[in-house]
C-alpha cells in the first residue's frame, strides 16, 4: 500500500530525475552563448548568455546596428554590460534575477511550472516566438491569480536592464540622436 511517506519519497525522486532530464534537455535547446569579448563573467551563466543573445535583438529591434557584424558585436556588448550591471546590484536583487533566469533557462515541458503559464519559448531560435513570449509578459495581468505580478515584473526587469545597458553604450547614441556629454575643454 502506498503511504503518504512513499508518495513524498517517490515525488521527490521523480522531481530530481525530471530536473536532471530537464537540464540535459535544456542544454540542447538553449542557444550557445556568444563569446564574451574576453570578459570574465561573474553572474551570467552560458545558458543566460545564450538566451540574452536571442532576447536582445527582439527587445532592441531597430535600435541595433543594421549590419550583422556590428549587431553581433553590439549584442555581445549588451551581454557583457548585463553582467557588469547585475554584479553591482544588491545581493537580494541578484537573487531575484537568478530566479528570473531559472525560469527562462529551464525547459518547462516536464517542469512543475507548466510552460503554458509562463509562455517561455521551447527553443530560442524563432524571433517571432520570442516576441510573442515577451509580449505576453508585457501585457500580463499584474493581478493574475496564478502568476501574480511575476511575469509583468520579469518583463520590466529584462527590458529595463537591456535598455540601460544599450543606451548607456556610446554605440547606441547615433541612433537616438545623442551627441554625448559636452566637451568641457
Amino acid at each position: 500500500m502506498l503511504t503518504r511517506r512513499h508518495l513524498l519519497q517517490k515525488s521527490a525522486i521523480s522531481g530530481i530525475t525530471l530536473l536532471a532530464f530537464e537540464n540535459c534537455l535544456a542544454s540542447q535547446l538553449i542557444p550557445a552563448a556568444p563569446e564574451g569579448l574576453g570578459h570574465s563573467f561573474e553572474f551570467l551563466t552560458p545558458y543566460d548568455r545564450g538566451i540574452l543573445s536571442k532576447l536582445t535583438p527582439v527587445i532592441l529591434a531597430e535600435a541595433l546596428p543594421k549590419s550583422t557584424e556590428e549587431s553581433g558585436q553590439a549584442i555581445k556588448e549588451v551581454i557583457v554590460g548585463w553582467d557588469n550591471a547585475v554584479s553591482g546590484l544588491p545581493t537580494l536583487t541578484q537573487k531575484e534575477i537568478r530566479k528570473l533566469f531559472s525560469v527562462l533557462d529551464s525547459n518547462f515541458i516536464f517542469s512543475l511550472t507548466p510552460r503554458l503559464l509562463t509562455g517561455v519559448p521551447e527553443a530560442w531560435n524563432d524571433p517571432s516566438e520570442i516576441e510573442d513570449f515577451l509580449y505576453s509578459w508585457y501585457i500580463s495581468d499584474p493581478e493574475s491569480l496564478i502568476t501574480g505580478n511575476e511575469l509583468r515584473i520579469g518583463y520590466m526587469g529584462l527590458v529595463e536592464l537591456t535598455m540601460a545597458v544599450w543606451y548607456g553604450n556610446p554605440r547606441s547614441w547615433d541612433f537616438c540622436g545623442y551627441a554625448g556629454p559636452p566637451d568641457l575643454l
Binding site: 527587445i59 529591434a61 531597430e62 535598455m163
Partner: peptide, 18 residues
C-alpha cells in the same frame, strides 16, 4: 539623457525604438 529616457519608457521592440 538617453539611458534615463530608454529605461523609463514603456514597451520594447519597434515601438520603443521608434
Amino acid at each position: 539623457q538617453p539611458m534615463l529616457v530608454a529605461t523609463n519608457l514603456e514597451g520594447h521592440g519597434k515601438v520603443h525604438a521608434e
